[in-house]
Structure formats: C-alpha cells, structure tokens
C-alpha cells in the first residue's frame, strides 16, 4: 500500500496503542501519549478534546509524520507512518498532500512574502501553473474571505487573519484529511462561526476532519464525534 489507494475495512486514520514521550535530559522523558487508541473513518469529523498538556497536539504531529511513536502504530490508509517511511520523499509528499496539518500557532506556519504566495505554494508544488493556479488561489482566497489580504505580508496580519491564511494555505492543496490544532483559538465569535461553517462544508463534501479543541461549543457546532483525553495522556472510555 503506498498512500495512493483507499484501504479496505480499516478506518482512514488509526492510532493503535500509541505511546510517545519527549526526551528532556538524559534518561528523563516527559510522556505525551500513553497507550492511545482511536480511529477516524473517511468522511468523519472527530474532535480530540482534553485539558492542556494531555497530548492532543502530539497526536496530530505523529499523524503528520513529524515524530515517530515510541510504542504502537499510527496508520493512515492502512500504512504505518514511521520515520523509515517518512525518509522516502515520495511517501512523505503523498502523506502531506492527503493529510493537511494546520498548526496551532499560525506564526510558525507562514513563511512566504505575501498571502497569495502562501496559498499558491502548495498548488505550485503540485505542478499547477497559469490559469489553473490562479483559479485555485482565487477560489481559496474567496472561500476564506481573505481576497483583500492577497498582497499583504502574513506577519503583518492580525492573529485571526493569520489563522485564516494558515488554514487557507493548507486547504489550497485539497487534502483528504484536514488536521487542525485548536483552529478557533483566539478567534472572535464571527470568525469561530466562519471556521466551523467551513469545516462542516468540508466534511459534507466527503472529506475528513480531525481537530483538537478544548471548546465544547465548537465540538457541538461541528457535530463532531468526541475523543476525550485526560491528564494521564490516555483516551478516556
């Protein structure tokens, strides 16, 4: 299986008894995930909820292949995401195309000179050019209502605007699974409604959303299935 085809019976995203700890000093580790198991089926919207520091963001990093579990397995479309597989550039690119990760801090996600360049970055890498690229960029900017920011430098934007741009630059790659880390943090009510409205439409179109949040109203607004974690870094049944 090479991340190019849909799996059979297994869910699209599977966390199978996953354990992970960050290494601090020699021998000392700080556990982030402890025997975590859950799955996300294609077309589902799942919200990872829990208190600060319970490992929600770490789970998303493992799914994006940025770290490798110390125990257990994270599988996407039936294939385990490991450091060895991520070393294969083709595999890594296919994974990142299909799984779009929106970071919790938009400041660490935006690195292009203008908003337009940010949104165009991914599609350009996919080989788009000319009218197709322009169309993709225009669609994405319109989708998030940020056409007016197209020629602004991302680091000059407000926090809420940066968050929308960060999401837009991932969505422009048309990922199958949108993975968002606290997508409504620091947003006002209207912006929260806009984000949840987009995510609902995204799921309604048959795509999948996995997000982390500690805001219960966002979970209910999305109609998301809740996977709750607690301070012991485990999934609460």
């Amino acid at each position: 299986m090479s991340l190019g085809t849909k799996a059979g019976d297994e869910a699209l995203v599977v966390f199978d008894h996953v354990g992970f700890a960050y290494a601090d000093r020699d021998g000392a580790t700080s556990v982030a995930l402890d025997d975590v198991s859950f799955s996300v089926a294609a077309g589902e919207c799942v919200a990872l909820v829990g208190p600060n520091g319970c490992g929600k963001s770490t789970a998303l990093r493992l799914l994006a292949g940025l770290d490798e579990p110390d125990a257990g397995e994270v599988r996407f479309d039936g294939e385990a995401i490991t450091a060895a597989r991520m070393a294969d550039q083709a595999f890594a690119k296919r994974l990142h195309k299909r799984v779009g990760l929106v970071f919790q801090d938009p400041d660490t996600q935006l690195f292009c000179p203008t908003v337009r360049d940010e949104v165009a970055f991914g599609p350009r890498q996919m080989g788009m050019g000319g009218d197709e690229l322009e169309g993709r960029v225009a669609d994405t900017l319109a989708l998030f209502g940020i056409e007016g920011l197209a020629h602004r430098a991302p680091y000059h934007l407000s926090g809420g605007e940066k968050r929308k741009v960060a999401m837009a630059c991932v969505v422009s790659c048309a990922p199958e699974v949108l993975v968002c880390d606290e997508p409504t943090n620091a947003l006002d009510e209207d912006s929260v409604a806009e984000v949840t409205g987009f995510l609902k439409a995204f799921v309604a179109a048959g795509r999948t959303v996995l997000l982390t949040t500690h805001q219960a109203d966002v979970v209910s607004a999305l109609g998301a299935r809740e996977v709750r974690m607690d301070k012991s870094h485990r999934v609460v049944r």
């Binding site: 085809t5 550039q89 690119k93 296919r94 996919m126 806009e194 179109a205 048959g206």
Partner: peptide
C-alpha cells in the same frame, strides 16, 4: 469564508469532489 458560512458560495469543485490518486513529481530538495 463569508462565502461558505453565509451559504452564498459552495465549496469549489476541486474541494467538493474527490481527486484522483496523487503522485508527487520527483524533486531533490531534501
């Protein structure tokens, strides 16, 4: 995003419909 939230504009086609399997172009930027 005003478009989607207010229902005035649906998702664009490239997002609303499934895409064929993606094969990344070869590159050496590692």
């Amino acid at each position: 995003m005003r478009g989607v939230a207010s229902g005035a504009a649906p998702l664009p086609a490239w997002l609303a419909e499934p895409e064929p399997a993606y094969e990344p172009p070869r590159d050496r930027d590692g």
